[in-house]
Simulated scan of single mutants.
Amino acid sequence: MTAITTSNSTKVNASHARCRLMRPVCPIFAQWTTPKKAARLPPMKWRIGSVPHLNARPLIYGIQQEVALCAPARLADELYRHGFDLGLAPVAEVLRHDQYDVINGIAVTSHGAVRSVFLLHRAPLDKISTVALDPASRSSSLLLRVLLEQRYGLKPEFVLRTRGDSPTDYEAALVFGDEAISYAAAHRQTGLDLGAAWTEWTGLPFVYAVWAVQRGIANGELSAMLHRAKTDGLTHLEEVIQNSPEGTPELRRDYLTKHIRYDLGDAEKAGLKRFQQCLCELKLAQPHELRFVD
């Protein structure tokens, strides 16, 4: 794989560079294609990827200079191709492909309203005929489909949002991540909060991202580094809040302290298992046993 020279003369592999460009990736649901396996890259210590969103920053605190930032769907594809050794990965990738170990004790989760993943809709929920999805987030799209079909008994048509379109250009649109946080800062109404809808339905937390490690790579040194980053990030959470651009400091503080959680314990694993079961029932994932490592 081609090496790319950055302005500070450091060389990074091409998959890292692609991720920093954050090009949109699609498709979703039954239209998904499985990426071809890429050749192994030259050996490095660890090649680490993460999503670039506010809720991920506390988990990469102190190691952010070693982490390539990718839109969620791009990160998932690069992980699948072995472009990364590990990534703070969207949960859909772990549930779709049985090639990862999951680091115990660390995740991006909510137990109730999440405020960064919601369905904006003009008509009443049961009157919606078309929903626009963001191709950058497969996990959020899958969660929305599960909720609409299995909780509410709805089967709208799903379309992809056109790049540059506002979510308000559509009858209904999925909004996630930093766009959702910015939207919430400017509007009182944010539609159906998917975190709240999931927990009200199941009584369980929802897990959005985990540290997914290529099977066999995880070891004590790697796990200790990730747990230390989490501890340091939560210790310096106010610094993360003050130095982030999304919304206002008050909104960021409320979001990171009241809505997002970072533990992966028994309740979160039960939520993961329930989501996997839902996806399998809709034939959107193949059943396999998740492997958690310390």
Rank of each mutant, 00 (worst) to 15 (best):
V94L: 03
V94G: 09
R96P: 00
R96V: 01
R96H: 14
H97D: 09
H97T: 10
H97R: 08
D98A: 11
D98E: 14
Q99V: 15
Q99I: 15
Q99R: 14
Y100G: 05
Y100S: 06
D101V: 02
I103A: 15
I103T: 02
I103Q: 06
N104T: 11
N104D: 15
G105W: 10
G105R: 10
I106K: 03
I106L: 13
A107D: 01
V108N: 03
V108F: 00
T109L: 08
T109W: 07
T109I: 13
S110D: 15
H111T: 14
H111Y: 14
H111Q: 13
G112F: 10
A113R: 15
R115C: 05
S116K: 03
S116A: 07
S116T: 08
V117M: 04
F118A: 04
L119S: 05
H121K: 03
H121V: 07
R122Q: 15
R122A: 13
R122W: 11
A123Q: 15
A123G: 08
P124Y: 11
P124I: 03
L125F: 08
D126M: 10
I128T: 09
I128A: 04
I128H: 05
S129L: 13
T130R: 12
T130V: 15
V131Q: 00
V131E: 00
A132D: 08
A132I: 02
L133R: 04
D134I: 13
D134Y: 07
P135Y: 03
P135C: 09
P135R: 02
A136Q: 08
A136L: 08
A136K: 02
S137F: 11
R138H: 10
R138S: 14
S139K: 02
S140M: 07
S141H: 09
S141N: 06
S141G: 14
L142T: 02
L142P: 02
L142F: 12
L144G: 05
L148E: 05
L148D: 07
L148S: 05
Q150E: 13
Q150N: 09
Q150F: 07
R151E: 07
Y152G: 00
Y152C: 01
G153E: 13
G153D: 06
P156D: 00
F158C: 00
V159T: 14
V159S: 07
V159W: 00
L160E: 09
L160W: 01
R161S: 11
T162V: 12
G164L: 07
D165I: 01
S166N: 10
P167L: 04
P167F: 06
P167D: 10
P167K: 02
T168P: 02
Y170I: 14
A172K: 01
A172E: 05
A173I: 10
L174I: 05
V175R: 00
V175C: 05
V175H: 03
F176N: 06
F176A: 10
F176G: 00
G177N: 14
D178N: 15
D178M: 09
E179G: 03
E179S: 02
E179W: 13
E179V: 07
A180T: 12
A180D: 04
A180R: 03
I181K: 01
S182P: 00
S182I: 07
S182W: 00
S182R: 12
S182M: 03
Y183Q: 04
Y183N: 04
A184I: 04
A185R: 02
A185Y: 05
H187A: 09
H187K: 08
R188K: 10
Q189F: 10
Q189D: 15
T190S: 05
T190H: 08
L192A: 11
D193A: 06
